[in-house]
Nucleic acid binder design. Structure first.
Lengths: 231, 231
DNA sequence: CGGACGTTTGAGGAACATCAAAGCCTGTGG
DNA sequence: CCACAGGCTTTGATGTTCCTCAAACGTCCG
């Protein structure tokens, strides 16, 4: 796995009020006046596929909002293997654990080129005291993380490998508004579903032969109806 | 599985200020005055092993604090099987998703006789506005749920069945201050670790033969050092 | 005593991991 | 422009683990 920590030089300063995904993000409910409480700039940074946004156990000073692209949260196992704990899509928060003054709990690595906003936690803490709306946004995020994790536990780590892969493909498809979605590498599919790279490859190849799945590079389309029969 | 909804008659009214596990619970940081904001009584209820505290998708009006005992959060799969999503111990919150006006996300079922405090969410919402300390307690709980779920995903649903069972036994032992801990039934071990009841039984029997585990009824003791070699 | 329930154990087979090798695509350098 | 190296994917052969089905055993309780 590539392991390049991002270069944080030349980040652009972002105007939250005019953000194109404003209705998705943490600050969706903030009023005009609230933004005056932001003392540090919100930096808009871009990272490339394979770059590491932050590392597990490193000091957590920022929360990040995904504007575009895709991030995997990774935890390494004692035996050197890794598991992907969660996938982050546009509108999701990365590093929310920073709000408790703790270190980050995972490695955050970009799966494709990704744009993010970097928000200093000091500002968030100040805003929380003033804006009850922000508090609600935050707990909504926690709630979403919890329920996603629950579904993951209940659905994606049990059953046959075909069922798991089918479930994951349907999940990835549902995340995207486009008709095609990003299909992670076989190794990452394995790390997501707790199966080996080879098994992931076999199932994907099988689905392609059956016409349930078409791919070009990492762009994929599925036949939802037929895939659902595997669940 | 038994399925008796709890009888909510004759709950005792609890004095939070004098609660014996006060330092553990949600209201740990509240000041004397804050308690005046509680309009409805906090009920202290007792449920027996096998009783259901609340059901998935039912209206969520209360958050619960576990005072003693043990609760499993359960989700049923389409095929009729169930998975245990999380175990709750004294000091943990059950039904925290109620704070978002949603239905409960799981079935909550007692594994042994359990004492709980029933807290109306209307009161909590009022307290949040007044007490920033409560807000911090709440986000701390969300954070703990997340990190526990992450560990579960990374550690307990991968690897051989022996590794999973060993990990679970060590986890259960670490939760308790006593030298012995509660060992769930084989079926529940399977639902926790995504293995079959039979496999759970075989591994437990094997560990007993090897002297890594002693049991009396549901009370168990382990040899930590030797068990850690399976991880 | 008899029935219900949970646990243990066995035999057989299917699914998946492991090990190994070949194929394929991309980018680089001669 | 071609050759080649490196990474990712596919495929095969083999072995192990675990699931499935089945039956027996122990325990608790009416």
């Amino acid at each position: 796995m590539k392991d390049t920590l991002i270069n944080q030089a030349s980040p652009g300063i972002n105007k939250c009020q005019q953000c194109c995904i404003r209705e998705l993000v943490l600050f969706a409910d903030l009023q005009q006046d609230d933004f005056k409480l932001l003392h540090q700039p919100i930096c808009n940074i871009e990272i490339k596929a394979g770059d590491t946004l932050y590392r597990e156990k490193s000091a957590a000073n920022f929360v990040y909002t995904i504007r575009s692209g895709m991030i995997k949260l990774v935890r390494y196992l004692p035996n050197g293997n890794y598991r992907i704990i969660r996938l982050l899509h546009p509108g999701d928060l990365a590093g929310i654990e920073a709000l408790h003054g703790l270190a980050y709990l995972h490695h955050a690595i970009a799966l494709k080129n990704t744009e993010i906003c970097q928000i200093p936690i000091a500002d968030i803490e100040q805003l929380i005291r003033k804006s009850p709306n922000l508090y609600k946004q935050l707990t909504a995020r926690w709630q979403k993380i919890q329920s996603d994790a629950d579904i993951w536990l209940a659905e994606l780590t049990v059953g046959s490998s075909k069922k798991r892969v089918a479930n994951l493909l349907l999940y990835l498809d549902a995340q995207n508004t486009n008709e095609s979605f990003y299909l992670p590498a076989r190794e990452d599919l394995g790390a997501l579903l707790a199966i080996t790279t080879e098994t992931a490859s076999r199932v994907i190849a099988e689905f392609k032969r059956q016409g349930l799945l078409q791919t070009q590079q990492h762009s994929a389309q599925i036949d939802k109806v037929k895939l659902e029969q595997y669940i």
